[in-house]
Design a protein around this nucleic acid. Structure first.
Lengths: 144, 144
DNA sequence: GTTATTGCAAATTATTTGCATATAA
DNA sequence: TTATATGCAAATAATTTGCAATAAC
């Protein structure tokens, strides 16, 4: 749990460094984001943040998520179905594999794929600013 | 333009084969989809369909798009920002490169990437049901 | 003649915004 | 002190749905 605090700290500092005010509500949300092992949506983040500080409103969650995204402190994902989902940005870059049956998200990384993407873009006269790679999967049949 | 008709024909037949009724409104939407060189959203499809048959309502566009998607006749994409965008499914599989400045969409295909995706999924005990690869790009600086 | 499909308007869902008040720096 | 952030409730935007009327097969 101590590492969680360190992550929350860092995010807070990143905000202060940019002159963004760190309010009680923002602290609560940062803590929740630092603790999250999954990719919660705004509603779920609101629910969790209220357990820390019950003055946090959903509107503030949305506003703060936008600020955090602008500051590069979190990433916003738009997986299939439902609304946006979020995660702290202090992890090395990765893509996502989504379990179609459970909704679970597995993170993975492939330098080869990244490289191929850059090549493709270049061939078309473009530069990749960012990308989205999501694998919607089902557990493999296991002969039981 | 004659090829457009053939595509619309095929889609219509696919529906009939499944016992789905082919209404005046659906014919209009199929024609629009067959003609489309881009990836229009529901609103735009509605606008175009009304030029063919002004009785087409937006509700019907949405309902028909769902039917067509269920029948595998079209693909639904959820690119960043804005609503879903659609395209006829009678093209070989491809991924998308989105121009961040113009919204233009370039289609591309990479067997290598597809293969790497399958490998990654397998490593995690999964099978890819479908995936989403989108490159959000900007035109490369050209020394003018 | 049935039964699926339609238009319309109202409902939903996710997200954003106006405004008066509260608060971080 | 003073600009920024907040809660609340109302506003949007995209999409869906109930229902009586209509049209496909």
């Amino acid at each position: 749990m101590t590492n969680v605090d360190a992550r929350a700290q860092e995010m807070e500092e990143a905000l202060r460094a940019e002159g963004v005010r760190v309010t009680r509500q923002r602290t609560a949300l940062l803590q929740v984001l630092a603790e999250a092992l999954d990719h919660p949506d705004a509603n779920e983040l609101h629910r969790r943040a209220q357990e820390v500080d019950d003055t946090v409103s959903l509107a503030t969650v949305y506003r703060t998520l936008s600020v955090l995204e602008d500051q590069g402190v979190i990433h916003r994902h738009a997986f299939e179905g439902g609304g946006a989902r979020f995660e702290a940005a202090d992890m090395p870059h990765h893509d996502h594999l989504i379990d179609l049956d459970t909704g679970a998200v597995v993170e993975f990384r492939s330098d080869k794929i990244e490289q191929l993407q850059a090549e493709i873009a270049r061939e078309h006269g473009y530069e990749v600013v960012h990308h989205r790679l999501e694998l919607y999967c089902r557990k493999r049949e296991t002969k039981d």
